[in-house]
């Protein structure tokens, strides 16, 4: 970050803020050790914490299928993918920790339902077709957002995204390979993957979030993220709609088409009430997945006690 901002400690608070946000607006980066306004720090923390929570909770729907993977190659690839997601959670919690909230606090808030995670991880996985659709399209939707986050004003977050994006691109290839194999398989396998797409399309369309006007989006104004929700959704559709259709799958939205004049994709209005319900913890699997985490967190509390040499229950889930 610009050194003049760092060292002008005699400035008034308002002037200091103004200089900070001017620095950001000009494309400058902020490092963990730099001075930053509390509201900026809180906003970055909230954003990164939700991302970390999402990586952690995103492990659950897929880990159910590690044991069920139908070939040795798939089993290896899926274990590696889920391991990557755990690794991403670890990296992101470290970024968040530097902003002043401990990992234990973040876990407790997550387990207590006080903090959020992405909508797509509140839904059930029903068949092997889901494993392909998640790794291909949900990871693709995520990577569109994450690539933009490499331009985040918060430097440690932007750099973490470099590594994460690279790994996610491997996941997409793994997912696409599963989907292609099913599409070229038996009629039952083709039906399996189409059914998965039918169930996942609505959550995917909601995944980038509400069409918040850019001027009202604080994350955008402060360049915590670099693109608006709708820009990301349009980008995803532009790349993936042709790819989905090309392999012979049907997208379950009769309104979906590219509007040449407006230069944007038109689609059936996503059910924003569903998105609100789901991300506030009322999705079909929200309670069950949190409970699953709580149970395992409590089951392994003694291990953390032993490692840290603390009294019983020091880190147990509340």
């Amino acid at each position: 970050m610009a050194t003049e901002v760092l060292h002008q400690t005699d400035q008034g608070e308002a002037e200091r803020r103004a200089a900070f946000f001017a620095h950001i607006a000009a494309g400058g980066k902020v490092e963990a050790t730099d001075w930053m306004p509390d509201d900026y720090r809180r906003q970055v923390l909230k954003f990164v914490e939700m991302h970390a929570n999402s990586e952690l909770m995103g492990v659950l729907p897929e880990r159910e299928w590690i044991l069920r993977a139908p070939t040795l190659k798939r089993k290896l690839a899926l274990t590696a993918k889920v391991q990557d997601e755990v690794g991403h959670a670890q990296l992101l919690y470290r970024v968040a920790e530097d902003l002043g909230k401990s990992r234990e606090e973040m876990w407790r808030d997550l387990l207590a339902g006080k903090t959020k995670f992405h909508n797509v991880f509140h839904y059930p996985t029903e068949t092997w077709g889901d494993v392909g659709i998640i790794a291909w399209l949900i990871d693709a939707a995520a990577i569109v957002a994450q690539q933009a986050l490499r331009g985040s004003s918060y430097g440690p977050y932007a750099r973490t995204m470099q590594k994460i994006c690279w790994e996610e691109s491997v996941h997409i290839m793994h997912g696409r390979d599963i989907v292609l194999t099913l599409v070229n398989g038996t009629p039952k396998q083709r039906a399996m993957v189409q059914d998965a797409l039918d169930r996942w399309w609505a959550p995917i369309m909601q995944m980038h979030g509400f069409r918040t006007p850019p001027e009202k989006d604080k994350d955008l104004a402060w360049r915590i993220k670099a693109k608006s929700n709708e820009e990301l959704r349009q980008e995803f559709l532009a790349i993936y709609v042709p790819r989905i259709l090309e392999i012979g799958l049907t997208i379950p939205d009769p309104e979906l088409r590219y509007d040449e004049e407006a230069k944007r994709w038109r689609y059936t209005e996503p059910d924003w009430d569903e998105l609100t319900r789901v991300v506030t913890g009322h999705g079909p699997k929200s309670a069950e997945r949190l409970q699953f985490r709580q149970i395992h967190y409590a089951d392994t509390a003694w291990v953390r006690d032993v490692i840290l040499g603390e009294g019983p229950g020091a880190l147990a889930a509340d």
């Binding site: 659950l60 590690i66 040795l72 089993k75 590696a80 889920v82 690794g87 291990v303 953390r304 490692i307």
Partner: peptide, 26 residues
Amino acid sequence: DSEWTGIGPALEEDVAYSSIAQDEIG
């Protein structure tokens, strides 16, 4: 081993255990 993937006692151990599980399957 791969049953521990995602639910290990700590994130670092989770990653290590998953890696070991992959070695065994390999």
